[in-house]
Structure formats: C-alpha cells, structure tokens
Design a binder for these strands. Sequence first.
RNA 1: GGCGAGGUAGCUCAGCUGGUUAGAGCGCAUGAUUCAUAAUCAUGAGGUCGACGGUUCAAGCCCGUCUCUCGCUACCA
Length: 677
Amino acid sequence: MKNWKRYTVTSALPYANGPLHIGHLAGVYIPADIYVRYLRKRGKDVIFIGGSDEHGVPITIKARNEGISPKEVVDRYHTIIKESFEKLGISFDIYSRTTNKTHYETASDFFKKLHRNGNFIEKTTEQYFDTEANQFLADRYITGTCPHCSNEKAYGDQCESCGTSLNATDLINPKSTISGSKPVLKETSHWFLPLDKYEQFLRNWILDEHKEWKTNVSGQCKSWLDMGLQPRAVSRDLDWGVPVPVSGAEGKVLYVWFDAPIGYISATKELTKDWERYWKDEDSRLIHFIGKDNIVFHCIVFPSMLKAEGSFILPDNVPANEFLNLEGDKISTSRNWAVWLHEYLDDFPGKQDVLRYTLCANMPETKDNDFTWKDFQARNNNELVAILGNFVNRTVVLTHKYFEGKVPPKGTPGDYEREVEKTILSLKTDIEQSIENFRFREAQKTLMDIARLGNKYLADCEPWKIYNNEPAKVGTVLYYSLQIAGALTTLCEPFLPFTSQKLQKLLNVQTQKWEEVGNISALNEGQAIETAFLLFEKIEDAEIERQVQKLLATKKQNEQISLPVTPAKPEITYDDFMKMDIRIGTVLEAGRVPKTQKLLKLKVDTGLDIRTLISGIAEYYTPESIIGKQVCILANLQPRNIKGTESKGMILMAEGPDGVLKLVSPAELSANGSLVK
RNA sequence: GGCGAGGUAGCUCAGCUGGUUAGAGCGCAUGAUUCAUAAUCAUGAGGUCGACGGUUCAAGCCCGUCUCUCGCUACCA
C-alpha cells in the first residue's frame, strides 16, 4: 500500500441549470464529504474540490427560453447549489465555478498545450448554420422530424420520443430554434481528441493496474474499451463557454466535457498557490467521487486528456456510485420527481444529519437504491433517536442525577470496562477500514455499533439499581459511558457533523484527534457537562404523510398532463394524398429478425402480390399474435434494406403519445388489395 | 441483439482465493427492565442464496442455459 503524502479529492461538478436533489447528495457529495472529513480528522493533507459546471448548450437554451442571459441562469443556480451544500455541511475547501477567470485561463492553457503538442486532430465537417442568426447551431438548437418515429420535435442529438440518439443531419425538415428558419449545411472545422490512440494505455491502466476499482466502474470501462473508442470533438460552434484559444477559431468554444473536468484544476489553483503539488506530484492521491453517468468522462476521457498533457497525475480511484430512486421511481427533474435539497432544508430545519444519515445508509454503492420517506422516518426514529440519541441522553441524565452533572471519578475498572475499551478500539479500526475502502454504509453501521455497545453496557451494569449500595461503581460505569459518548463525538463527525457539534456542546469537550479516540480520556474527571438536550427528535407520522402527499400530488399532476399531441402537419393537396398507395393486406407469416429487439419480418398478401417487409413492432406484437391479421400497408413506399432484408412497404401503425404502437386494421374483413382512401 | 452491473431473510445489505448448522442492521414475536424521546437489553421466528442443468468429496461463490431489474450500445417502422 502506497504511503500517500496528500489527497486531492474531487466531487462531480453539478450542472448549474437546476437545483440539487437527494440523488446528487447520496451519489457523490455525502461519500466524498465523509471521506474528506475522515482524512482531515486523521491529520492528512487533503483538499476537497467542488464547483458548478456552468457551460454547455442546455444552459443557453434555458436562458433563451426565459429571456435572460446564460450568466443569469448560472448565477441563480450556482447560488442555490452552493447554499444547499453549505447548509448540509458538505465541507469543500473551495466551491468554485467554471465561469470565473482562473478557469478560463487554465482551460485555455490546457488546450493550448495539447494543441502545441499535436495531440489534437483537426477535422472539417458540415454542420447546420442559421443564416438569419448568422451562427452555427448546436445539436440542441435544431429540431426536426425524427427519421425513426416521425416525432416532429426531435432534437439534433436525440429524439426524446423514441430515445434514439441522432445526428443533426439525420433530421427531416430541420429547423433552427433560434430564428425558426431552415438551417443550411456549412463547413466548419473542429479539434478532436483521438481517444482511440489512448485505448491501449487505458486498458493497461484501468484493467491491469487498478483491479481494486469497484466492479461497476471497471466493468463500465471495459465495456467502453471493448466497443472501441472514437476521436471526440473538443470544440463547438457556440458563444457560451471558454473560447478556443487559437487563431482562426472565432466563434468556437471548448466543448463542455473538455472544460468541466479542468474545473477541478482551476478550482485548486484558486484555492492554493501550491496547486501543482496536488496535481503533479506522484505522492498525491487523486480521487474522483462521481455518479455512474460520469464514469466514461472520469475514467476514459479526462485521464486521456491528462495523459496527453503529460505533467499531471491520474486518478488513483474513481469510486462511482449508482443511482438513487425515489419511492420506486427514477428521480426526474422534468417530472419534478425529486426531493429538492432546498425544500428539505425548509421542511426539516436542523435535521441535516438525519438526511445525511439516511442517504448514507441507503447509498447506492453497488446498485441502484430506493429512498422512501417511510425508511427515512424509521432510520431517524429507530436508529438515530433510539440508539444514538437515547444512549447519549440516558448517560447525561444519569450523570446529572447521581453526580450533579460532573464527570465522576474513574474508580476501579473491571473486566467489563477493559472489554468495552477494547471493543471501541476495534470498532474504530473497522470504521477506518470501511472508509478507506469506500464502504460508507458499512462504516456508518459500525459507528452505530459503538452506541449500541453503550446501551448494552448501561443495561448490563444497571447503575440505577446499584447506586445505594455501590456509588463508586456507578461512578465508574458513568465514567465509561461518558467516554463512549466522547468517542462518538469524534467518530461521528465525518458522518454527522452537526451532531458532533451538539455533542461537543453537551459534553463540554472538543473533538479528539482520531488517533486518541478510544483511549478513555475524552472527558476529564470532575469536568462539568451540560444539562441534557435531545440530539434527535422523533419524526411523527403526520410529517412523513405530508411529504408523501406532496409526492402523490406531483404524480397526479404528471398523470394529468396529457402527453403532447404531435402538432398538425402542413396542409397538402388531394394529389399529394393520392400519391400514396395504401392497401389492405393479410399477414401470412411473421418471425423475429435475429439480433434485433424491435424488428419483425412479415410476409404479407397485399392483393397485388405477396411481399416481405420489416416492421419495428416486435415490442408490441409477437409473431403468433399478428399472423392472419388484416393490416394497412403503404405499398408504394420506396423499398429499403433493413438488416439484410429488403423491406417493400410499410405497415401503418397508430402511435400513441407514449410511443406505444397499435395496428391499424379494417373494421370488417376486407378483400386483400382494397384501396384505403 | 451485443456489452456491463445486479438479483442472498418483510426491508437495506455482508458473505475473503468454493469447505462444518448462510450472517448483520431495521421490522416482527416473546421475555426482562425502567436511567432514557414507550427508548433499552435478551431470546426467537423467518432464507430450496432468481430458475434449471453441470464440474467437485464439497457451490451462494466455478461452468453452461434461461429469466427479471438497471445502464451503455446497435438495429428500428
């Protein structure tokens, strides 16, 4: 095991076009914060880097839609995000943003160096250009008809109706969302990072040299590497972002994926003059906390960039988490299916640690996990209140009852006390092991075991029973109970920083150095402690019910929003219509097309002939269920080769707003070849 | 269709390079207890380890086939 001199810990930069929800917290920031707080307590040299990712097309679109500038958009969300982090105790050493000056310089320099080194390839491609607005159009600025599902509101990069990823040039009837005009293709040149050249290096580095990475992470990387990497554009034609710092690149900015991870470096620069030690010294350990959606960028793309640059260290580990669901459904910003942090903070004031605790206990470390309000309540009432809060409370109350609120003399410890001491130390070691292996759920559970130990110790010794006969023994028992609480004060700090604060106040102590925890000297004999106050309060059913109702209302609202009906198409003439030869036919044979998910191969009697056609309906109809059915066929559609079979014609389907396809059939049995008009 | 991750008690999860009666927390049941926010402590019930087949003296762990969930990817009217 390498002896690291310092730690550079980054957490994914949240995209500044919306507020944060519990998924962000559970996936990235809670584990990162626990890790960092732990390292600090151990006296390690560690910096914790965060910041808002403020470039990219979605932000410019949001700005345009709201009639404000991109800067105003990111200012608004950066503020909200930053405030949520602060209130939840995410202890960044710096929370920066990618729109500040340092970042522009850093990202520019980075690009320039790679450019000088000849690490990029320059390619000229044709892209859509809006002649009215006089600018190139990013994919998201182009809408048109999806060539696959005919959705008329497909974007240039993806059709959200059928989920297909597209190239802008695939769209039928492309339209600029800026001016509404029809864009024209125009040549533009861009720089590409040839990821394929780093494939071998990545393969060795990830799959051979970092076998300790989480299986979900290395598995995902292997999948990407096996598919083969392609050169990736690092620039875009856009006016929002870091300008490409070479001559002849006017109107071009760095692609957001290129500029965002450099944000980690820029933020470090802002934090300390000594930044290079954290990024270039082989004794520095770089750790990226991210969600699984970011694996490819942090394990493939960014390392390739760093490798190309040459002077930087590479991440030693990328402990990516899976996703958190909410009450059984995917968290979704557009459907408002989320618990927003700023709302939580309003609804549950002073309960930051309850959320931190619940999210840590349910952290999606190995697979997607589910957050439910019922579980939130149970964790609070049955664990934080009943085990941790209760142990501390009974200890403090007993101390006041028998010793006037002063730490009693240690007296003569017996076997039990020695056992308690040993157990605390061993649990502490377990916590260390778990955290260092990024097993935060396990670490937190072990933390609670210490409170459990305290409860059991009290129950076994029964100081309230023996006080009349053995007051000195009671002193010893409470002395040890208080020391357990003292140990908890420090050990809980990474997980429950606000509770640690409360404990310090209650016990009238400071946290110890991590190394000293468990040495039964957190509190001194005779020292006064505060009168008891509660660390945690029970959460009543009514409060939970309110939150559940809130979500139910959202769900109801979502259901009522009828999915948008595709808007009317432009008027056509009767002649246009008559060009189409639509006929009734009968399906004679049907079978799946091998190696596809959606395709059926059909043999149909059209009256004119018996022909073969391919139809993408396998998700809705089995071959058996469609044989013998009468269908409508567009018979004079240009044949097309699909998966090695010539498809002559198209079966007409009714597509619901949800994308579900249904056969269109004549209401009564009709002769094959009947004309539909 | 290809690739990746996952499917272990009601819930959330552990199970190391295969080895005695498969573990923990929460929940549940019973008992004890009253210092404590009806909190705590003890005991217990509860699992054909997704399904089937195979390798082995021995499989939750290895191999094969299938199935379900999530993600990436391909194809797609």
